[in-house]
Design a binder for these strands. Structure first.
Lengths: 215, 215
DNA sequence: CACTATCTGTTGACTAAGCAACAAATGTTG
DNA sequence: CAACATTTGTTGCTTAGTCAACAGATAGTG
């Protein structure tokens, strides 16, 4: 498989990854939680010294002490695992800050923006060893995973307080999430960029009109 | 159960604990290694803030995210888990220093003595929060676990090079292991005791005659 | 004392994880 | 190109872990 699969519609929760078979809802079985946590944590550790593209499923499961067949019982491929891993970490970061986007409060939106900026920064710092020696860039599949998480959070919030415009929640969420990530990425690649606390309000002001096209 | 069961004859390896059913040999199944590692690690973490006596099996398995029935499939009781946990940590400490007792070399014996002293010190430091606020003492079941590990190592070494005297390897190993632990304990409880590097040779000279009654 | 509560082991039915083997696709080297 | 090795998904069978429920032991409370 050369190209990653399309990001699924459903939000890829870390404990209930994007899969072919089962419906949503978090798994209760301790074995399931344990296996997914081990796989995600192992991938995170491998990414400190290895490039994602160069990793095989066999290598990940070997390092995790998990059978390869078990891997495929949880994730369709390594891209899904990456997505869930990033989702889990980003979610943990945002939850640790008490950020919950409900569709109307722009403070929460700014929290998401700030979270993405900081998450990008720390992800780059961690993988400084092997991944992108010179350019301040993340591997592409990690980027789309972050966007998918942000899109899922925005979509949840928008659906709770749907705006009255003509645009679908999906379109609004996708547009805003790509915009947020693009802005954060641009900020990060700017030499001598200001701290995230300064740039976050600016990005937030740029994105707000997307979510509230009328006002 | 009010009293701990007697220390078994076989050495309680961390990955193959003292059990009713199976024979010796380390388990190959990743699930088995994982479960035992989680339980031992969880116990170690709990002991930082809790007293061993006050812990129930239910509490340990709950914190570990392991089913209580699974616990009993690996350990007959919490004392066996403690023993295996201590054995694993002490073994790791000694192996990290390259200590292997083969029954004859007194340098290795001194390595064991030094390891016990340092292990006692670090065990006390870790559990300083809750266990024994004033006296420099370890919970009794931890003490017997340490002695069991030392006894097992000595027994392995003695059997490789059995001395010619009238004493059985078991008697020699038990006597020496209790002597070593008692000496280390006395050293640790002495106010302003010298560093372990100084006391270890002294203890070793005390114990050597036990293992080599003739010479 | 009786009542309640918790802990200890144990059992049997169900489910997830391990394992070996497979076919197919993809590289890689001569 | 051909031969070889690696990776990817998938499949049946076995084993370990989960879960609920059980009986017995221990201990606290009115």
């Amino acid at each position: 498989m050369a190209l990653p699969p399309a990001i699924s519609e459903d939000f890829p929760s870390p404990s209930e990854p994007r899969m072919a078979s089962p419906e949503g809802g978090e798994s209760q079985d301790p074995r399931v939680r344990r296996t997914r946590q081990i796989l995600q944590q192992t991938l995170a550790e491998l990414l400190r010294t290895r490039e994602f593209e160069s990793l095989s499923v066999h290598e990940i499961t070997d390092a995790a002490g998990v059978n390869r067949a078990t891997f495929y019982a949880h994730y369709p491929d390594k891209f899904a695992l990456l997505e869930c891993m990033v989702a889990g970490r980003l979610h943990a970061l945002l939850e640790g800050r008490g950020v919950v986007f409900d569709g109307s409060c722009s403070m929460a939106l700014q929290g998401i923006v700030l979270g993405v900026c900081d998450f990008l920064t720390q992800s780059l710092r961690q993988g400084a060893g092997a991944k992108c020696p010179k350019a301040n860039q993340l591997p592409p599949h990690m980027e789309s995973a972050i966007i998918a998480v942000v899109r899922g959070m925005l979509l949840d919030g928008i659906r709770k307080h749907p705006p009255e415009g003509e645009y679908s929640p999906e379109l609004l969420a996708s547009t805003a999430s790509w915009a947020i990530y693009g802005a954060a990425r641009e900020w990060l690649q700017t030499p001598d960029h200001p701290p995230s606390e300064e740039v976050a309000p600016a990005i937030q002001r740029l994105v707000v009109p997307i979510l509230h096209p009328e006002g």
